[in-house]
C-alpha cells in the first residue's frame, strides 16, 4: 500500500497533473471566495456561502484528480504488474485513494490563504468571523471531498478511458448532489426520507452552522467505504470475467 501511495504521489508531481490540479483548484476557489465575501453588496466575513458553493466546484475538480487512477493502469497494461504482485487488491485501491486524498488535503491547506484577509480585516474593524463555522465547514468539506474521491476511484476502475471515468464520476456525483431536489415532487414519505438520507448535500448543512453532526460523519464515511469496497469487488469480478 505504501509503495503504491508513494508511486501515485510521485506521479502527481512528476507529471503536470498535480500542478495543474492545484493551480486550477486554487484559482477557482480563490475567485469563488472573493466573489462570495468581498464582492458582495455588503462585504461579509461569513464564509458559509463560499463553502457550500465549493462543494459543487469540488464535484468537478476532484474527478480530474481520480479519473486516471485505475484507467491509466489498464490502458497501459501496468495493471498486470499490480494485480500479479503479492499485494491485496484492497491495499492497491487504498493506496490510490489515500494519494488522491493527500492531494486534496494539500489543496485545501493551500486554499486557507483565502482566510487571511478575513482575519486581517478584523483589525480594521470588520466583524469577527465565526471560527466554529469555519472549522465545521472545513470538516464537512474534507468529508465530502473524501466521498467524491472514493466515487472517482470507483469510476476510474470502470473504464480504461480517463475521460469516460471523469464523466461517470460527474454523473454519480450529480446524482448524489441533486437527489433531494426530487423531494419537492414526491408525496410518499418514506421515499422522501430515503432520498434525503442519500443526499450528500443535505448532510452538509448542519456543519455549515458549526454543528458537529455525528450522523453525517457516519454517512460520509460509509459512502466512502462502500465505494472503495465496490472498487475492490469490481476487480475481483472482472478477474472472473
Amino acid at each position: 500500500m505504501v509503495a503504491i501511495f508513494k508511486k501515485e504521489m510521485r506521479a502527481y508531481f512528476t507529471t503536470p497533473m498535480g500542478y495543474i490540479f492545484l493551480a486550477v483548484s486554487l484559482f477557482v476557489s480563490s475567485f469563488l471566495f472573493a466573489l462570495t465575501t468581498y464582492f458582495q453588496e455588503e462585504p461579509t466575513s461569513n464564509t458559509g456561502t463560499y463553502f457550500s458553493y465549493l462543494i459543487f466546484v469540488l464535484a468537478i475538480l476532484l474527478p480530474v484528480l481520480t479519473m486516471r487512477s485505475f484507467s491509466e493502469e489498464r490502458r497501459t497494461k501496468t495493471d498486470q504488474l499490480l494485480f500479479t504482485s503479492p499485494v491485496s487488491i484492497f491495499s492497491l485501491v487504498l493506496g490510490k485513494f489515500l494519494a488522491a486524498v493527500c492531494m486534496f488535503l494539500i489543496y485545501l491547506g493551500l486554499s486557507m490563504i483565502n482566510l487571511i484577509p478575513i482575519f486581517a480585516n478584523v483589525a480594521l474593524g470588520a466583524n469577527e468571523p465565526n471560527v466554529a463555522v469555519i472549522v465545521g465547514n472545513l470538516i464537512a468539506i474534507i468529508l465530502v471531498g473524501i466521498c467524491f474521491i472514493a466515487i472517482g476511484i470507483f469510476a476510474s476502475a470502470l473504464s480504461e478511458n480517463p475521460a469516460v471515468s471523469f464523466i461517470i464520476t460527474l454523473g454519480i456525483l450529480a446524482g448524489f448532489l441533486v437527489i433531494n431536489l426530487f423531494n419537492a415532487y414526491i408525496e410518499i414519505g418514506w421515499i422522501r426520507a430515503v432520498l434525503s438520507w442519500l443526499s450528500i448535500y443535505g448532510r452538509f448543512v448542519n456543519f455549515t452552522y458549526g454543528i458537529f453532526d455525528i450522523g453525517a460523519l457516519v454517512y460520509y464515511i460509509s459512502i466512502t467505504g462502500i465505494f472503495l469496497f465496490l472498487t475492490e469487488r469490481l476487480f475481483q469480478v472482472r478477474r472472473l470475467g
Binding site: A3, K7, A11, T76, K77, Q80, L81, T84, S85, V87
Partner: peptide, 27 residues
C-alpha cells in the same frame, strides 16, 4: 515473476525508479 505480453512499464519513470517501485510493491 511475470512478464506479460506488453511489459508493464511506467513510461515516465526512470529504469531505477521503476525497479525500485517494483521492489517496494513486492515487499
Amino acid at each position: 515473476g511475470f512478464l506479460p505480453e506488453q511489459p508493464p512499464l511506467y513510461m515516465d519513470m526512470t529504469v531505477w525508479e521503476y525497479l525500485s517501485f517494483v521492489f517496494d510493491l513486492k515487499g
